[in-house]
Each structure stands twice: as structure tokens, then as C-alpha cells.
Simulated assay, not measured.
Amino acid sequence: MAGRLDGKVAVITGGVSGIGLGTVELFVAEGARVVAADIQDEKGRMLERRFGGAVRYARSDVTVEGDIAGALGLANSEFGGLDILFNNAGISDMMRDVTEIQPETWSWIFDVLVRGPALGMKHATPLMLARGGGSIINTASIAGLQAGWGPIAYSSAKAAVIHLSRCAAAQLSPQKIRVNAICPGLIATSIFGASLGLPREVADQMAARVAEHGAKVQPVPKAGVPEDIAKAALYLASDDSEFVTGTHIVVDGGITVGSRHSWDQSGPSPFAALFPELGADAAAD
């Protein structure tokens, strides 16, 4: 049975752990050849050994334009071109008040989360045009849609990613290059530990806690895992989404549908809190 990405070549940044790794695994299973770009060399070498000729690792700091160009160039030289770019590499700041943010931190967050994808698109476009088109996918976040889901610099950058994707789609889609974003919710990865300032090893362990408790705070009673985002990326990367561009897909187990009372009647109703004299039953009506 043919895979949905047979014959396609992809570059995935942040590709050796978390969402990136889950997407590498799924894309290879669906027939793609993949360059996994990251800065975790040991994990990258292990990934190459695991998948043999289907995966190449490229050391790539997405804040360095030459690194991004190099990873995309590797896809071209090793696999003959480029069809898919998943700008997924991410970092997070610690939770802090806007009055406490440091200029250097703000710049670092935006360099990785916004400038990195923009540079990726810059260098991917000529390679995709040579193949007759392609698909660019950017990892945004529900933090870019609503306040309260992440640190302020991170949340602001993810909002920028959503609009960057929309603007780039307007420019590139007439040339058969589609651009879309994915907004993950609570996905069990190390980024939550990183936002608390924990070392990478401890942050990786914290992902297990997110997996354990995530299902309790959203309508869908299942912990979000990297494969959930990988499946959305597969749809956007494949020809199944050839009529989809300039939009974002929210993959969050329903956590942003409304207040807890909207999906858990035992939770506090904001309407009832405003009008307690009506009683809980009347407020529910």
C-alpha cells in the first residue's frame, strides 16, 4: 500500500525529540525521506542509525541562517529536492510578568520562533519551486490565540507565527507552495519544563507528568502526545490538503473551546457567578 508521502522529501526542524521526532517517524512510515535538523547531535546520530538511508541529520541552529540553508541544501543534495518544510524547532521562556522581561530574552525567543521559520521559508522556496510546489508547516500554539497558555514572549511570538503563515501563504500559494500553521495544546514534551527553567534532562522527565495529568483539564479525555501533532502535519504535508493554505489547525483536545463549565457541568459557571440569584439550574438553561 502506497504511503501518503511516497516520493516526497521533508525537512523537519527540532526533529530529534518531541513533536519533531514524532513527525519524523510518521513521515518516514508514510514514505518520505527526511532531514531532521536540530542541535542535539547524539540524538541525531541515533536517528540516522535507526532509519538508515531514509533519514539524515543536520546540525542546525535556526537562529543561524547558514545552518538553515545547510539543512535544506542537504535535502537537495542527498534526496534530490524539497517538498515539505516543517518549521517546528521551539523554545520557551520562563513564566514571568511583562515588567520583568529582558530585551535579550525577548529577542532570543523571537529569533528562534519567528525569524527561524521566516528564514526557513526563504531558503525552502527556490527548492520547492524547482519541484513544482510544496507545503510549509509552522508550529504555532494555542498560546498565540489566547492569553494564559504560555509565557508572554513565547505567546506573542506564536501569534506572530500564525500571521506570518497567513502572509507567506498569500505570497507563495499562487506558486503552488502552501503555508499553514498548527496550534498544539497541552502536548507531552519537554517544552513545559523548559518554560520553568529546568535543565533538559529534568524537562524531559516533566513531559511524563504532562501526559499523566493533561487529560484531566480538557474535554477530550486523552493526553496530548507528539503523534497527535504529527498526524495534523501529515495532513498538511500531503496532497489531501492541496486546497488548504493560509490557515491554522488547532490540535488541543478542545481545551480552548470555552471555560471548564462548557464541558464539565461540575465546574464553576461564570454565568452563575455573575447572577447567583438565578440559581445554578437557571444559569445552565
Rank of each mutant, 00 (worst) to 15 (best):
A153G: 05
L164Y: 02
T105K: 06
A147F: 05
E78W: 09
T189P: 03
C183H: 06
S190T: 06
F110R: 14
M95Q: 14
L172F: 09
K122R: 13
A181C: 10
G73P: 08
C167R: 15
K122E: 12
G116A: 07
S77R: 15
Q146P: 01
G193S: 09
P174D: 10
D83P: 02
I182R: 07
K122S: 08
F79T: 11
G150A: 13
P103V: 09
W149A: 08
S165R: 04
N88R: 11
A147Y: 06
A168Y: 05
P117M: 03
Q102G: 09
G144T: 06
W108V: 05
S156P: 07
I137T: 09
A130P: 07
R96A: 15
E78R: 13
E100F: 00
V98H: 09
G144M: 09
E100M: 01
V112Q: 12
P117S: 14
E78I: 11
A118C: 14
L74S: 13
N138D: 09
L145K: 13
L164N: 04
G193F: 05
T99E: 12
L119N: 07
A169I: 03
I101Q: 10
I182N: 00
T125P: 00
G193M: 03
D97N: 14
Q102V: 02
S190R: 09
T139Q: 05
L82S: 04
A89V: 11
A89F: 07
G132K: 00
A75K: 01
P199G: 03
G116P: 01
A194E: 14
D111V: 08
M95Y: 15
K158W: 03
M128Q: 04
R131L: 02
A89S: 06
P174W: 07
L113T: 10
S165T: 10
E78S: 14
K176S: 14
A157K: 10
M95R: 13
Q175W: 11
E100D: 14
K122G: 09
R178P: 01
A194W: 08
I191K: 04
I142F: 07
G185E: 08
K158L: 06
W108H: 15
A169Q: 10
G116C: 02
L186H: 06
A143K: 11
I91Y: 04
L172V: 01
F86R: 05
K176Q: 15
S77E: 15
S190Q: 13
Y154E: 02
K122I: 12
D97M: 13
P103K: 02
N76C: 15
N88H: 04
G73A: 06
S165K: 04
V98D: 01
V112C: 11
I101S: 10
S195I: 06
R131Y: 02
G197H: 02
V112K: 07
F192C: 02
P199H: 04
G133S: 06
L119G: 06
A143V: 05
A157Y: 01
G134L: 05
A118H: 13
K176A: 14
A188V: 13
M94D: 12
T139Y: 03
Y154I: 09
G132E: 00
G185D: 02
A157Q: 06
H123Y: 14
K158C: 05
L145Y: 08
G148I: 09
N180M: 11
G150W: 08
L127A: 00
A170V: 14
R115K: 15
M95P: 03
N138P: 10
P117K: 14
L198W: 13
V161S: 08
